[in-house]
Amino acid sequence: MLGEGILKGLTETARNFFGSYVDDERLTTVQYPEERLEQIEATRDFPFLVYDGEDWEKGMRCVSCQICEKECPPKCISIEKSKDKKPDATGKAQFYPAKFDIDISVCMSCQICVEVCPFDAIKMDVVYELSTEDRFGGLLLNKEQLSKSNEYYNKIHPTEAGAVDAALAAEREKARQAAAAKAAEAKPAATAVVGAAAVERDGTK
């Protein structure tokens, strides 16, 4: 019969219409500002910089290698290398970023910067209420705004951060052992050549 399917569809929509008033289970909408959906662990939006310890400037893991800046597809990262050095996460003297800006209005949340970072210094954040009245300056985050503690990282991505922490601890242990060995070698009148070779080996690793 002509119109049979139409009638079937009309009953279905009518059932939805009245059902949504009777049965709250049907409603799929979340009333956003009052209630929020739980975020899954792999949630990501914009990158942030991880620091260890209390002081964000001292504990900054980033060594300003600028790989992320080169790899970033939309080119939203801008880094200026420092002139002096400071100890990095494993205690070695490294450069640090004098300036580290990310324009999150350009960022496309691809996570490539995180993938390429050899120092586990840049990770993806989960904050999403970032609206601002200043469309240019407000969305250009500087080093201080980007820095977030390792504890925060552990809180938002526990599994991933655990693995990173374990790897870092192993690195630190190795660095400590190397330093200890170096110290032990240095004690029995070690030559400068051996020390230099040790440094070189560390550097290539």
């Binding site: 939805n16 219409f17 949504s20 008033y21 049907r26 409603l27 799929t28 909408t29």
Partner: peptide, 10 residues
């Protein structure tokens, strides 16, 4: 509102 209810929205 009607369309919303038909689609199980508010």
């Amino acid at each position: 509102k009607g369309l919303g209810r038909i689609q199980n929205r508010y």
